[in-house]
Amino acid sequence: MCEGCHADLPWLIHSCPRCALPLPRHLSGLCLQCRHELPLFDRVQAAFTYSFPVSELIPVIKYQRQPAHLGWLAAVLGDFILQRHEGQWPDALVPVPMHRFSQINRGYNQAELLAQRLGKQLQIPLNACLHKHRRTPKQMSLSLEDRRHNLQGAFAVRSAVPEHVALVDDVMTTGTTASTLTRLLLERGCKQVDIWVLARTPENH
Rank of each mutant, 00 (worst) to 15 (best):
A166S: 15
V157K: 12
E56N: 11
Q83T: 08
V197S: 10
Q88H: 08
K120F: 13
I195D: 10
R158P: 07
T174R: 04
V168A: 08
H205N: 06
P202I: 00
L126T: 02
A20S: 15
G78I: 01
M98Y: 00
M140Q: 13
A128G: 05
L57V: 15
P10W: 07
W89E: 07
L184T: 07
R35P: 10
I104L: 15
R148M: 11
L73C: 02
H149R: 13
I58S: 00
Q64R: 15
Q192R: 15
G29K: 05
F48P: 01
F101D: 13
R188I: 00
H99E: 14
Q152L: 08
A47S: 14
A199P: 05
R84L: 12
Q64K: 15
R35M: 12
L186T: 00
L9M: 13
L38K: 10
K138T: 11
P22I: 09
V94R: 07
C129L: 04
L40R: 14
S143L: 05
T136V: 12
Q192W: 06
P24I: 09
F80M: 02
L118A: 08
P90H: 02
G189E: 11
E145Y: 10
S55W: 03
W72K: 04
R200E: 04
P59R: 07
A111G: 03
T173H: 03
A166D: 07
T177V: 06
C2P: 00
K120R: 15
Y63K: 02
H85Y: 10
E56K: 09
S141M: 13
R35N: 10
Q88A: 14
P162L: 03
M1H: 08
A47G: 14
H85R: 14
M98Q: 09
H149T: 06
H69R: 10
C31I: 10
Q110E: 09
P10F: 01
L186H: 14
G189P: 04
T176L: 07
V165L: 04
S28D: 07
C31Y: 05
Q103Y: 03
L27H: 08
W72C: 09
P90T: 00
L70Q: 09
P67D: 03
D169A: 01
D146Q: 15
L93F: 13
A166W: 07
P17M: 05
V94D: 00
G29T: 04
T177W: 07
L144N: 02
Q116G: 12
A128N: 12
A166R: 12
A160G: 07
H6S: 05
L93H: 06
D91Q: 14
E3D: 13
L27W: 12
V60W: 06
G189C: 09
L9H: 06
V165R: 07
H133N: 05
L144R: 14
F80Y: 13
V76S: 09
H26R: 12
R117N: 00
E203M: 08
H14Q: 03
P162W: 06
E145N: 02
A199L: 05
T177N: 11
N204F: 04
V76Q: 14
P53Q: 03
F41D: 07
C190H: 06
A46C: 04
Q64I: 05
P24Q: 10
P162C: 12
T136M: 11
F52G: 04
N105V: 12
C16V: 11
Y108H: 01
P90E: 02
R200D: 02
A46S: 09
L12M: 03
Y108C: 04
T176S: 15
C31H: 10
H99P: 06
R106M: 09
D42F: 08
A178M: 12
